[in-house]
Design a protein around this nucleic acid. Structure first.
Lengths: 236, 236
DNA sequence: CACATTGTTATACAATTGAATAATTTATCA
DNA sequence: TGATAAATTATTCAATTGTATAACAATGTG
Protein backbone atom coordinates (compact mmCIF):
# COMPACT_ATOMS: atom_id res chain seq x y z
CA UNK A 1 0.00 0.00 0.00
CA UNK A 2 2.86 2.35 -0.70
CA UNK A 3 2.11 5.66 -2.24
CA UNK A 4 2.80 6.33 -5.86
CA UNK A 5 6.25 7.73 -6.45
CA UNK A 6 6.35 10.96 -8.40
CA UNK A 7 8.57 13.81 -9.42
CA UNK A 8 7.80 17.45 -9.12
CA UNK A 9 7.58 19.38 -12.34
CA UNK A 10 7.78 23.06 -13.00
CA UNK A 11 4.51 24.91 -13.29
CA UNK A 12 4.83 25.27 -17.06
CA UNK A 13 5.80 21.67 -17.67
CA UNK A 14 3.00 20.27 -15.56
CA UNK A 15 0.42 22.55 -17.07
CA UNK A 16 1.52 21.70 -20.57
CA UNK A 17 1.47 18.00 -19.77
CA UNK A 18 -2.07 18.28 -18.48
CA UNK A 19 -3.24 20.35 -21.42
CA UNK A 20 -1.80 17.88 -23.90
CA UNK A 21 -3.41 15.00 -22.09
CA UNK A 22 -6.67 16.93 -22.20
CA UNK A 23 -6.43 17.41 -25.95
CA UNK A 24 -5.57 13.77 -26.44
CA UNK A 25 -8.59 12.66 -24.43
CA UNK A 26 -10.97 15.10 -26.07
CA UNK A 27 -9.80 13.99 -29.49
CA UNK A 28 -10.28 10.34 -28.62
CA UNK A 29 -13.42 10.36 -26.50
CA UNK A 30 -15.02 13.71 -27.17
CA UNK A 31 -15.83 16.33 -24.59
CA UNK A 32 -18.31 14.09 -22.85
CA UNK A 33 -15.78 11.28 -22.54
CA UNK A 34 -12.90 13.40 -21.35
CA UNK A 35 -13.29 12.99 -17.61
CA UNK A 36 -10.87 14.33 -15.08
CA UNK A 37 -9.82 10.81 -14.22
CA UNK A 38 -9.12 9.80 -17.81
CA UNK A 39 -7.20 12.97 -18.47
CA UNK A 40 -5.04 12.74 -15.37
CA UNK A 41 -4.42 9.05 -15.98
CA UNK A 42 -3.25 9.93 -19.48
CA UNK A 43 -0.93 12.53 -17.98
CA UNK A 44 0.33 10.03 -15.43
CA UNK A 45 -0.86 11.94 -12.40
CA UNK A 46 -3.80 11.90 -10.01
CA UNK A 47 -6.98 13.90 -10.11
CA UNK A 48 -6.01 16.44 -7.48
CA UNK A 49 -3.69 18.29 -9.83
CA UNK A 50 -6.55 19.59 -11.93
CA UNK A 51 -7.81 21.74 -9.12
CA UNK A 52 -4.30 22.67 -8.11
CA UNK A 53 -3.23 23.91 -11.54
CA UNK A 54 -6.43 25.08 -13.18
CA UNK A 55 -9.02 25.46 -10.43
CA UNK A 56 -11.59 23.40 -12.28
CA UNK A 57 -11.95 20.98 -15.14
CA UNK A 58 -13.72 23.52 -17.33
CA UNK A 59 -10.92 25.99 -16.88
CA UNK A 60 -8.40 23.31 -17.78
CA UNK A 61 -10.27 22.53 -20.97
CA UNK A 62 -10.44 26.20 -21.86
CA UNK A 63 -6.69 26.42 -21.39
CA UNK A 64 -6.19 23.34 -23.52
CA UNK A 65 -8.23 24.90 -26.30
CA UNK A 66 -6.17 28.08 -26.13
CA UNK A 67 -3.06 25.92 -26.24
CA UNK A 68 -4.29 24.16 -29.38
CA UNK A 69 -5.23 27.37 -31.16
CA UNK A 70 -1.91 28.84 -30.15
CA UNK A 71 -0.08 25.95 -31.79
CA UNK A 72 -2.08 26.22 -34.99
CA UNK A 73 -1.67 29.96 -35.36
CA UNK A 74 1.98 29.84 -34.35
CA UNK A 75 2.89 27.46 -37.12
CA UNK A 76 0.79 29.50 -39.52
CA UNK A 77 2.58 32.69 -38.53
CA UNK A 78 5.93 30.98 -38.75
CA UNK A 79 5.11 29.77 -42.21
CA UNK A 80 4.26 33.34 -43.17
CA UNK A 81 7.21 35.03 -41.53
CA UNK A 82 9.89 32.70 -42.78
CA UNK A 83 10.16 34.99 -45.74
CA UNK A 84 12.02 32.48 -47.87
CA UNK A 85 11.26 32.53 -51.54
CA UNK A 86 9.04 34.71 -53.67
CA UNK A 87 5.63 35.83 -52.40
CA UNK A 88 4.08 33.25 -54.68
CA UNK A 89 6.26 30.54 -53.18
CA UNK A 90 5.36 31.57 -49.66
CA UNK A 91 1.63 31.63 -50.28
CA UNK A 92 1.80 28.38 -52.17
CA UNK A 93 3.80 26.74 -49.41
CA UNK A 94 1.33 27.93 -46.80
CA UNK A 95 -1.66 26.60 -48.71
CA UNK A 96 -0.02 23.26 -49.44
CA UNK A 97 0.99 22.88 -45.82
CA UNK A 98 -2.63 23.17 -44.79
CA UNK A 99 -3.60 20.34 -47.14
CA UNK A 100 -0.92 17.85 -46.21
CA UNK A 101 -0.01 15.78 -43.34
CA UNK A 102 0.92 16.98 -40.09
CA UNK A 103 -1.48 19.88 -40.44
CA UNK A 104 -4.33 17.87 -41.81
CA UNK A 105 -4.21 15.22 -39.12
CA UNK A 106 -7.63 13.88 -38.32
CA UNK A 107 -7.03 14.34 -34.64
CA UNK A 108 -6.45 18.05 -35.01
CA UNK A 109 -9.57 18.52 -37.06
CA UNK A 110 -11.63 16.50 -34.61
CA UNK A 111 -10.37 18.64 -31.78
CA UNK A 112 -10.99 21.82 -33.67
CA UNK A 113 -14.56 20.87 -34.52
CA UNK A 114 -15.35 19.67 -31.02
CA UNK A 115 -14.26 22.97 -29.53
CA UNK A 116 -15.96 25.03 -32.22
CA UNK A 117 -19.19 23.48 -31.04
CA UNK A 118 -18.72 25.18 -27.67
CA UNK A 119 -17.76 28.61 -29.00
CA UNK A 120 -21.30 29.83 -29.21
CA UNK A 121 -22.24 29.32 -25.58
CA UNK A 122 -18.97 29.72 -23.72
CA UNK A 123 -17.60 33.28 -23.88
CA UNK A 124 -14.15 31.98 -22.97
CA UNK A 125 -14.13 29.67 -25.96
CA UNK A 126 -15.48 32.44 -28.16
CA UNK A 127 -12.64 34.75 -27.27
CA UNK A 128 -10.01 32.11 -27.93
CA UNK A 129 -11.59 31.31 -31.26
CA UNK A 130 -11.83 34.93 -32.29
CA UNK A 131 -8.20 35.62 -31.51
CA UNK A 132 -7.06 32.60 -33.47
CA UNK A 133 -9.28 33.44 -36.40
CA UNK A 134 -8.08 37.01 -36.46
CA UNK A 135 -4.47 35.85 -36.45
CA UNK A 136 -5.13 33.42 -39.27
CA UNK A 137 -6.82 36.10 -41.38
CA UNK A 138 -3.94 38.42 -40.70
CA UNK A 139 -1.43 35.84 -41.88
CA UNK A 140 -3.39 35.29 -45.05
CA UNK A 141 -3.62 39.00 -45.78
CA UNK A 142 0.12 39.32 -45.29
CA UNK A 143 0.72 36.50 -47.73
CA UNK A 144 -1.81 37.65 -50.29
CA UNK A 145 -0.99 41.33 -50.67
CA UNK A 146 2.48 41.10 -52.25
CA UNK A 147 1.26 38.47 -54.67
CA UNK A 148 -1.56 40.74 -55.81
CA UNK A 149 0.83 43.64 -56.21
CA UNK A 150 3.27 41.66 -58.30
CA UNK A 151 0.55 40.75 -60.76
CA UNK A 152 -1.08 44.11 -61.02
CA UNK A 153 -4.25 43.08 -59.26
CA UNK A 154 -6.28 45.44 -57.08
CA UNK A 155 -4.81 45.23 -53.60
CA UNK A 156 -6.50 47.74 -51.34
CA UNK A 157 -6.80 46.81 -47.69
CA UNK A 158 -10.48 46.03 -48.11
CA UNK A 159 -9.82 43.82 -51.11
CA UNK A 160 -7.06 41.93 -49.33
CA UNK A 161 -9.29 41.38 -46.35
CA UNK A 162 -12.11 40.04 -48.48
CA UNK A 163 -9.72 37.73 -50.27
CA UNK A 164 -8.40 36.54 -46.94
CA UNK A 165 -11.89 35.79 -45.68
CA UNK A 166 -12.78 33.83 -48.78
CA UNK A 167 -9.48 31.99 -48.97
CA UNK A 168 -9.65 31.14 -45.30
CA UNK A 169 -13.13 29.75 -45.84
CA UNK A 170 -11.87 27.59 -48.68
CA UNK A 171 -8.93 26.33 -46.66
CA UNK A 172 -11.05 25.66 -43.59
CA UNK A 173 -13.67 23.76 -45.52
CA UNK A 174 -11.25 21.66 -47.53
CA UNK A 175 -9.10 21.09 -44.47
CA UNK A 176 -12.00 19.72 -42.52
CA UNK A 177 -13.68 17.58 -45.13
CA UNK A 178 -10.32 16.37 -46.33
CA UNK A 179 -9.16 15.33 -42.91
CA UNK A 180 -12.36 13.42 -42.22
CA UNK A 181 -11.78 11.83 -45.59
CA UNK A 182 -15.12 10.23 -46.16
CA UNK A 183 -13.61 8.21 -48.97
CA UNK A 184 -15.47 10.13 -51.66
CA UNK A 185 -12.20 11.22 -53.20
CA UNK A 186 -8.48 10.75 -52.63
CA UNK A 187 -6.97 13.10 -50.12
CA UNK A 188 -3.97 13.79 -52.30
CA UNK A 189 -5.95 15.79 -54.82
CA UNK A 190 -6.38 18.56 -52.27
CA UNK A 191 -2.99 20.31 -52.45
CA UNK A 192 -3.30 20.94 -56.18
CA UNK A 193 -6.98 21.72 -55.84
CA UNK A 194 -6.44 24.39 -53.21
CA UNK A 195 -3.64 25.94 -55.24
CA UNK A 196 -5.59 26.30 -58.45
CA UNK A 197 -8.64 27.41 -56.50
CA UNK A 198 -6.60 30.09 -54.78
CA UNK A 199 -5.27 31.33 -58.11
CA UNK A 200 -8.79 31.75 -59.34
CA UNK A 201 -10.11 33.32 -56.16
CA UNK A 202 -7.38 35.93 -56.21
CA UNK A 203 -7.70 36.51 -59.93
CA UNK A 204 -4.12 35.44 -60.62
CA UNK A 205 -2.88 34.03 -63.91
CA UNK A 206 -3.08 30.25 -63.96
CA UNK A 207 0.04 28.51 -62.72
CA UNK A 208 1.40 31.42 -60.76
CA UNK A 209 0.98 29.53 -57.50
CA UNK A 210 1.15 26.02 -58.86
CA UNK A 211 4.61 26.67 -60.23
CA UNK A 212 6.01 29.72 -58.43
CA UNK A 213 9.48 29.43 -60.00
CA UNK A 214 8.06 29.32 -63.45
CA UNK A 215 10.17 26.29 -64.28
CA UNK A 216 7.48 24.72 -66.38
CA UNK A 217 6.51 27.84 -68.23
CA UNK A 218 9.47 28.18 -70.54
CA UNK A 219 8.01 28.34 -74.01
CA UNK A 220 4.35 28.30 -73.23
CA UNK A 221 2.44 31.35 -74.04
CA UNK A 222 -0.92 31.72 -72.42
CA UNK A 223 -2.10 28.19 -72.73
CA UNK A 224 -4.65 26.68 -70.42
CA UNK A 225 -6.61 29.89 -70.56
CA UNK A 226 -9.76 28.23 -69.38
CA UNK A 227 -9.82 30.59 -66.45
CA UNK A 228 -10.76 34.24 -66.37
CA UNK A 229 -13.13 34.41 -69.30
CA UNK A 230 -13.87 37.97 -68.24
CA UNK A 231 -10.80 39.04 -70.14
CA UNK A 232 -11.52 36.70 -72.94
CA UNK A 233 -14.94 38.20 -73.48
CA UNK A 234 -13.36 41.59 -73.60
CA UNK A 235 -11.03 40.45 -76.34
CA UNK A 236 -13.60 38.72 -78.43
CA UNK B 1 -49.02 11.97 -5.61
CA UNK B 2 -50.88 11.51 -8.84
CA UNK B 3 -48.98 10.33 -11.83
CA UNK B 4 -48.18 12.62 -14.65
CA UNK B 5 -50.87 12.65 -17.28
CA UNK B 6 -49.68 11.93 -20.77
CA UNK B 7 -50.86 11.18 -24.24
CA UNK B 8 -49.63 8.42 -26.44
CA UNK B 9 -47.94 9.49 -29.62
CA UNK B 10 -47.28 7.57 -32.77
CA UNK B 11 -43.86 6.02 -33.09
CA UNK B 12 -42.74 8.58 -35.64
CA UNK B 13 -44.02 11.57 -33.71
CA UNK B 14 -42.45 10.50 -30.45
CA UNK B 15 -39.15 9.67 -32.06
CA UNK B 16 -39.04 12.98 -33.85
CA UNK B 17 -39.92 14.82 -30.67
CA UNK B 18 -37.09 13.11 -28.83
CA UNK B 19 -34.59 13.71 -31.63
CA UNK B 20 -35.43 17.40 -31.80
CA UNK B 21 -35.09 17.71 -28.05
CA UNK B 22 -31.75 15.96 -28.35
CA UNK B 23 -30.53 18.43 -30.96
CA UNK B 24 -31.74 21.33 -28.89
CA UNK B 25 -29.88 20.10 -25.82
CA UNK B 26 -26.70 19.27 -27.70
CA UNK B 27 -26.71 22.70 -29.28
CA UNK B 28 -27.20 24.40 -25.95
CA UNK B 29 -25.07 22.31 -23.60
CA UNK B 30 -22.81 20.31 -25.86
CA UNK B 31 -22.58 16.55 -26.00
CA UNK B 32 -21.30 16.35 -22.44
CA UNK B 33 -24.18 18.40 -21.13
CA UNK B 34 -26.91 16.61 -23.03
CA UNK B 35 -28.00 14.10 -20.42
CA UNK B 36 -30.92 11.79 -20.80
CA UNK B 37 -32.77 13.68 -18.11
CA UNK B 38 -32.30 17.08 -19.71
CA UNK B 39 -33.28 15.77 -23.11
CA UNK B 40 -36.41 14.03 -21.92
CA UNK B 41 -37.40 17.01 -19.81
CA UNK B 42 -37.05 19.19 -22.90
CA UNK B 43 -39.28 16.76 -24.78
CA UNK B 44 -41.79 16.75 -21.93
CA UNK B 45 -41.49 13.05 -21.15
CA UNK B 46 -39.65 10.88 -18.66
CA UNK B 47 -36.36 9.10 -19.03
CA UNK B 48 -37.76 5.66 -19.71
CA UNK B 49 -38.72 6.53 -23.25
CA UNK B 50 -35.14 6.75 -24.38
CA UNK B 51 -34.62 3.06 -23.85
CA UNK B 52 -38.04 2.27 -25.20
CA UNK B 53 -37.57 4.12 -28.50
CA UNK B 54 -33.84 4.01 -29.14
CA UNK B 55 -32.40 1.34 -26.90
CA UNK B 56 -29.72 3.62 -25.53
CA UNK B 57 -28.77 7.26 -25.29
CA UNK B 58 -25.92 6.87 -27.78
CA UNK B 59 -28.26 5.39 -30.34
CA UNK B 60 -30.68 8.23 -29.83
CA UNK B 61 -27.94 10.77 -30.43
CA UNK B 62 -26.86 8.96 -33.56
CA UNK B 63 -30.43 9.09 -34.81
CA UNK B 64 -30.63 12.78 -33.97
CA UNK B 65 -27.50 13.42 -36.00
CA UNK B 66 -28.92 11.55 -38.95
CA UNK B 67 -32.10 13.56 -38.56
CA UNK B 68 -30.13 16.82 -38.65
CA UNK B 69 -28.09 15.84 -41.69
CA UNK B 70 -31.27 14.69 -43.37
CA UNK B 71 -32.84 18.09 -42.87
CA UNK B 72 -29.82 19.94 -44.19
CA UNK B 73 -29.44 17.82 -47.29
CA UNK B 74 -33.17 17.77 -47.92
CA UNK B 75 -33.42 21.51 -48.12
CA UNK B 76 -30.29 21.58 -50.23
CA UNK B 77 -31.75 19.05 -52.63
CA UNK B 78 -35.04 20.86 -52.73
CA UNK B 79 -33.26 24.07 -53.53
CA UNK B 80 -31.52 22.31 -56.40
CA UNK B 81 -34.52 20.47 -57.77
CA UNK B 82 -36.93 23.35 -57.73
CA UNK B 83 -35.75 24.11 -61.21
CA UNK B 84 -37.11 27.61 -61.27
CA UNK B 85 -35.10 30.16 -63.13
CA UNK B 86 -31.92 29.95 -65.17
CA UNK B 87 -29.07 27.70 -64.04
CA UNK B 88 -27.26 30.82 -62.90
CA UNK B 89 -30.23 31.87 -60.83
CA UNK B 90 -30.50 28.45 -59.25
CA UNK B 91 -26.85 28.23 -58.32
CA UNK B 92 -26.87 31.80 -57.07
CA UNK B 93 -29.96 31.18 -55.00
CA UNK B 94 -28.44 28.07 -53.48
CA UNK B 95 -25.22 29.84 -52.54
CA UNK B 96 -27.02 32.85 -51.11
CA UNK B 97 -29.32 30.60 -49.08
CA UNK B 98 -26.33 29.04 -47.42
CA UNK B 99 -25.03 32.42 -46.32
CA UNK B 100 -28.24 33.88 -44.96
CA UNK B 101 -30.46 33.32 -42.08
CA UNK B 102 -32.30 30.27 -41.45
CA UNK B 103 -29.48 28.22 -42.92
CA UNK B 104 -26.70 30.07 -41.21
CA UNK B 105 -28.21 29.88 -37.77
CA UNK B 106 -25.56 29.60 -35.10
CA UNK B 107 -27.36 26.70 -33.54
CA UNK B 108 -27.15 24.62 -36.67
CA UNK B 109 -23.46 25.29 -37.07
CA UNK B 110 -22.78 24.49 -33.43
CA UNK B 111 -24.60 21.22 -33.82
CA UNK B 112 -22.82 20.40 -37.01
CA UNK B 113 -19.39 21.05 -35.51
CA UNK B 114 -20.14 19.15 -32.35
CA UNK B 115 -21.12 16.05 -34.28
CA UNK B 116 -18.25 16.38 -36.73
CA UNK B 117 -15.98 15.97 -33.75
CA UNK B 118 -17.35 12.47 -33.24
CA UNK B 119 -17.16 11.34 -36.86
CA UNK B 120 -13.62 10.10 -36.59
CA UNK B 121 -14.15 7.63 -33.78
CA UNK B 122 -17.74 6.55 -34.17
CA UNK B 123 -18.38 4.55 -37.36
CA UNK B 124 -22.08 5.33 -37.12
CA UNK B 125 -21.39 9.04 -37.16
CA UNK B 126 -18.90 8.60 -39.99
CA UNK B 127 -21.47 6.90 -42.19
CA UNK B 128 -24.07 9.58 -41.57
CA UNK B 129 -21.56 12.27 -42.34
CA UNK B 130 -20.37 10.60 -45.52
CA UNK B 131 -23.87 10.20 -46.87
CA UNK B 132 -24.71 13.81 -46.19
CA UNK B 133 -21.48 15.04 -47.70
CA UNK B 134 -22.00 12.93 -50.80
CA UNK B 135 -25.47 14.31 -51.25
CA UNK B 136 -24.27 17.85 -50.84
CA UNK B 137 -21.54 17.35 -53.43
CA UNK B 138 -24.04 15.81 -55.77
CA UNK B 139 -26.35 18.78 -55.46
CA UNK B 140 -23.50 21.15 -56.18
CA UNK B 141 -22.43 19.19 -59.25
CA UNK B 142 -25.98 19.26 -60.53
CA UNK B 143 -26.14 23.00 -60.10
CA UNK B 144 -22.69 23.69 -61.52
CA UNK B 145 -22.70 21.69 -64.73
CA UNK B 146 -25.37 23.58 -66.70
CA UNK B 147 -23.81 26.89 -65.75
CA UNK B 148 -20.44 25.75 -67.05
CA UNK B 149 -22.01 24.54 -70.27
CA UNK B 150 -23.82 27.79 -70.91
CA UNK B 151 -20.61 29.74 -70.65
CA UNK B 152 -18.45 27.46 -72.70
CA UNK B 153 -16.33 26.28 -69.79
CA UNK B 154 -14.89 22.77 -69.57
CA UNK B 155 -17.50 20.62 -67.93
CA UNK B 156 -16.34 17.03 -67.84
CA UNK B 157 -17.53 14.93 -64.95
CA UNK B 158 -14.11 15.14 -63.30
CA UNK B 159 -14.01 18.91 -63.64
CA UNK B 160 -17.49 19.29 -62.24
CA UNK B 161 -16.60 17.12 -59.31
CA UNK B 162 -13.47 19.09 -58.54
CA UNK B 163 -15.40 22.32 -58.73
CA UNK B 164 -18.01 20.89 -56.41
CA UNK B 165 -15.37 19.88 -53.87
CA UNK B 166 -13.77 23.30 -53.90
CA UNK B 167 -17.04 25.18 -53.85
CA UNK B 168 -18.34 23.03 -51.05
CA UNK B 169 -15.18 23.76 -49.10
CA UNK B 170 -15.68 27.45 -49.61
CA UNK B 171 -19.31 27.30 -48.57
CA UNK B 172 -18.58 25.14 -45.55
CA UNK B 173 -15.80 27.37 -44.33
CA UNK B 174 -17.65 30.64 -44.81
CA UNK B 175 -20.81 29.13 -43.40
CA UNK B 176 -19.07 28.11 -40.22
CA UNK B 177 -16.96 31.14 -39.56
CA UNK B 178 -19.81 33.40 -40.59
CA UNK B 179 -22.28 31.77 -38.26
CA UNK B 180 -19.91 31.96 -35.32
CA UNK B 181 -19.48 35.60 -36.33
CA UNK B 182 -16.48 36.53 -34.26
CA UNK B 183 -17.23 40.18 -34.94
CA UNK B 184 -14.24 40.57 -37.22
CA UNK B 185 -16.51 41.53 -40.08
CA UNK B 186 -20.18 42.05 -40.75
CA UNK B 187 -22.07 38.89 -41.58
CA UNK B 188 -23.96 40.53 -44.40
CA UNK B 189 -20.89 40.74 -46.62
CA UNK B 190 -20.95 36.98 -47.02
CA UNK B 191 -23.71 36.50 -49.62
CA UNK B 192 -22.00 38.78 -52.12
CA UNK B 193 -18.61 37.42 -51.19
CA UNK B 194 -19.59 33.83 -51.79
CA UNK B 195 -21.17 34.74 -55.12
CA UNK B 196 -18.17 36.54 -56.54
CA UNK B 197 -15.88 33.86 -55.13
CA UNK B 198 -17.93 31.19 -56.83
CA UNK B 199 -17.76 33.02 -60.15
CA UNK B 200 -14.00 33.06 -59.93
CA UNK B 201 -13.68 29.48 -58.73
CA UNK B 202 -15.75 28.25 -61.64
CA UNK B 203 -14.04 30.55 -64.11
CA UNK B 204 -17.25 32.35 -65.00
CA UNK B 205 -17.46 35.91 -66.32
CA UNK B 206 -17.84 38.40 -63.49
CA UNK B 207 -21.43 39.19 -62.62
CA UNK B 208 -22.93 36.05 -64.10
CA UNK B 209 -24.01 34.82 -60.69
CA UNK B 210 -24.27 38.17 -58.95
CA UNK B 211 -26.85 39.32 -61.47
CA UNK B 212 -28.30 36.23 -63.12
CA UNK B 213 -30.99 38.16 -65.01
CA UNK B 214 -28.44 40.50 -66.44
CA UNK B 215 -30.58 43.49 -65.47
CA UNK B 216 -27.54 45.57 -64.72
CA UNK B 217 -25.66 44.55 -67.85
CA UNK B 218 -26.55 47.15 -70.43
CA UNK B 219 -23.97 46.18 -73.05
CA UNK B 220 -25.70 43.16 -74.51
CA UNK B 221 -22.82 42.29 -76.75
CA UNK B 222 -22.47 38.98 -75.01
CA UNK B 223 -24.42 36.03 -76.29
CA UNK B 224 -27.30 36.71 -74.02
CA UNK B 225 -29.76 34.84 -76.19
CA UNK B 226 -28.60 31.66 -74.56
CA UNK B 227 -30.29 32.69 -71.38
CA UNK B 228 -33.92 31.82 -71.45
CA UNK B 229 -35.40 34.13 -68.88
CA UNK B 230 -38.19 31.93 -67.63
CA UNK B 231 -37.93 33.89 -64.46
CA UNK B 232 -41.32 35.44 -65.16
CA UNK B 233 -42.99 32.20 -64.15
CA UNK B 234 -41.72 32.83 -60.65
CA UNK B 235 -44.70 35.07 -60.02
CA UNK B 236 -47.19 32.26 -60.18
C1' DC C 1 21.63 17.10 7.59
C1' DA C 2 17.36 19.06 9.45
C1' DC C 3 13.57 21.42 7.93
C1' DA C 4 10.19 24.11 5.68
C1' DT C 5 7.79 24.51 1.32
C1' DT C 6 4.57 22.85 -1.72
C1' DG C 7 3.81 19.74 -5.47
C1' DT C 8 1.44 15.49 -5.32
C1' DT C 9 -1.24 11.58 -3.73
C1' DA C 10 -5.07 9.46 -1.49
C1' DT C 11 -9.59 9.50 -0.10
C1' DA C 12 -14.17 11.02 0.79
C1' DC C 13 -18.42 12.97 -0.80
C1' DA C 14 -22.59 14.56 -2.87
C1' DA C 15 -24.45 14.94 -7.27
C1' DT C 16 -25.33 13.13 -11.66
C1' DT C 17 -25.12 9.76 -15.00
C1' DG C 18 -27.31 5.79 -18.18
C1' DA C 19 -29.83 1.80 -17.76
C1' DA C 20 -33.10 -1.51 -16.00
C1' DT C 21 -37.51 -2.97 -13.87
C1' DA C 22 -42.05 -2.60 -12.15
C1' DA C 23 -46.28 -0.09 -11.87
C1' DT C 24 -49.82 2.51 -14.16
C1' DT C 25 -52.31 4.98 -17.46
C1' DT C 26 -53.90 5.67 -22.18
C1' DA C 27 -55.85 4.21 -26.35
C1' DT C 28 -58.07 0.69 -29.26
C1' DC C 29 -61.26 -2.66 -30.50
C1' DA C 30 -64.86 -6.00 -29.94
C1' DT D 1 -68.80 -0.73 -21.97
C1' DG D 2 -65.11 -3.75 -20.75
C1' DA D 3 -61.00 -6.12 -21.86
C1' DT D 4 -56.49 -6.05 -23.94
C1' DA D 5 -52.14 -4.19 -25.57
C1' DA D 6 -48.56 -1.14 -25.04
C1' DA D 7 -46.98 3.52 -24.37
C1' DT D 8 -45.53 6.05 -20.54
C1' DT D 9 -44.34 6.95 -15.76
C1' DA D 10 -42.06 6.09 -11.44
C1' DT D 11 -38.40 4.19 -9.04
C1' DT D 12 -34.24 1.77 -8.17
C1' DC D 13 -29.39 0.76 -9.02
C1' DA D 14 -24.52 0.70 -9.71
C1' DA D 15 -21.17 3.42 -11.83
C1' DT D 16 -19.09 7.70 -12.79
C1' DT D 17 -18.72 12.47 -12.35
C1' DG D 18 -16.20 16.97 -10.44
C1' DT D 19 -14.63 18.86 -6.38
C1' DA D 20 -12.92 19.35 -1.83
C1' DT D 21 -9.80 18.13 2.06
C1' DA D 22 -6.21 15.92 4.46
C1' DA D 23 -2.04 13.24 4.41
C1' DC D 24 2.23 12.60 2.31
C1' DA D 25 6.78 13.02 0.06
C1' DA D 26 9.97 15.28 -3.20
C1' DT D 27 12.85 19.15 -3.52
C1' DG D 28 15.99 22.66 -2.22
C1' DT D 29 17.52 25.91 1.08
C1' DG D 30 19.75 27.05 5.51
Amino acid sequence: MSRKTFQRLSLDDRRRSLMEATLSCVARHGLHGASVRRITEEAGVTVGLVRHYFGSKDEMIRNAYAYLVGQLTAQASESANRGEGSPETQLSRFLRANMTMPNMAEETVSLWATFIGRVRHDPGFAEIHRDGYREFLSVLETLIEPVLIRHGCPHSVAICKNHAIALNGLVDGLWMEGALNSGLYARDILPDLVITSAERLLGLPAGVLADPQGTLQQPLQRSKQLEQPEQKSKAS
